[in-house]
Design a binder for these strands. Structure first.
Lengths: 221, 221
DNA sequence: TCCAAAAGTTGAACGTGTTCAAAAGTCGTG
DNA sequence: CACGACTTTTGAACACGTTCAACTTTTGGA
């Protein structure tokens, strides 16, 4: 009768399963949320859930994508009006871990399904290339508003993203309340990295950095 | 009749299960080796295997320990007669990934059970502290035979171990034949790190390094 | 309208890691 | 030997992720 929704029934069901899964992941953690429970809670059969998502990991991949989008949005907003590489970096890194905070409880299971090379969620892999580009984009934004040496500019977003991956790894293991240690790390590392980048122009340092960049290119394949 | 073995029956059974498991892990990979298959192959019941090893992960932990011991032994031997920080570092890193080579096939499953914070195998965790000390010790050996700035000396083994963890992470994802790219990385990174350490004495660089060390201490807890 | 092909749905079944109560073996002591 | 406390062994049972053949619903063209 009424205008048909643009979303087909199928898309609605898929979205329903996904939403249910993400909600349950957040509230009970990844390991404790079973596919059966997701299906039951969403009001579909187990097989139906698998019709839309080939594996439990694939649902985590969606969680990862969503989280990266949040991170990027939060970082963009937070970067507004902030100047200076150190502060911009700090803001972006903070926005990143802030967006991750709800998932810290199951960081272990998260990383264990996110890191394996053959996993769909693996941040270096094919399936998540979109999300990775998004994440690297955050750091493009960071340096767009800052003064950085020209010879580094092209490589910096990826390098900073790599540093961010390191921060995330640290965060996963951070057992301090509210991940205080990770925030300490960010606040300390941001100015350090900024200084390092500034120094990379200096005659003593520049050859070293150039050598590192050459190695990075050489190793890439 | 003959003199009784020192190992009690219990210890023999435990060793038998472990050896069987490691052999099967190596030949068929971690995921494809089931606990039932291990038990059957070892001639014990499934429950018995679990009597000695609380989980499949615990068996991997043994694999990890064994591998670290191999790495250390290989590195020690290889370091003999090699001088210069760059070469010593290169030799140690190469020995490290060489010892890991047999496991590259199931690097994915390895890392996915090795990295989660609550996992027994997690290299930063409690259960593997012995293995970690062993691994850090390799890099103590590396710098024992080399000239390094005094103010860095105490922190270097752990920092180099951290760099090594990065290399291992790269190695896990390295799909090139024979992990050629990882070896390229090692050969390029070793002299770079050595130069970086040498440069850390310079007036421009030293404050930066000291700041980094201070941050490391601050973040530690 | 009708029908065949496609899309979606179902729950039983498989193989897995893990648990556990019960049975069997071992050992020191009277 | 006998007995009790222990260590060790066993395999059935559980919950899980995943697969699949059968079933039902939707779709689009004649």
């Amino acid at each position: 009768m009424a205008g048909q929704q643009l979303d087909s029934k199928s898309e609605q069901t898929k979205a329903l399963v996904l939403e249910t899964a993400l909600r349950m992941f957040r509230s009970k953690g990844f390991a404790k949320t079973t596919m059966r429970a997701i299906a039951t809670e969403a009001g579909v059969s187990l097989g139906s859930a698998y019709y839309y998502f080939a594996s439990k990991d694939e649902l985590v991949l969606e969680l990862y994508r969503e989280s990266v989008a949040e991170q990027r949005a939060a970082a963009s907003k937070a970067l507004d009006g902030v100047s200076g590489l150190s502060d911009r970096l700090k803001v972006a890194l903070r926005a990143g871990v802030d967006a991750l905070t709800p998932y810290h409880g199951f960081g272990g299971t998260f990383i264990s399904s996110a890191l394996p090379p053959q996993s769909a969620t693996n941040p270096f892999g094919e399936a998540s290339s979109q999300a990775r580009e998004d994440a690297v984009g955050i750091f493009s934004e960071v340096i767009d508003g800052a003064k950085v040496p020209q010879f580094l500019r092209a490589e910096l977003p990826e390098l900073l993203w790599l540093a961010y991956m390191g921060v995330v790894l640290f965060w996963v293991y951070d057992r301090s309340e509210n991940q205080r240690r990770t925030r300490t790390l960010i606040d300390g590392a941001a100015p350090l990295i900024a200084k390092l980048i500034a120094f990379s122009r200096l005659p003593v340092v520049k050859p070293l950095v150039e050598e590192a960049l050459a190695l990075k290119a050489k190793v890439r394949s």
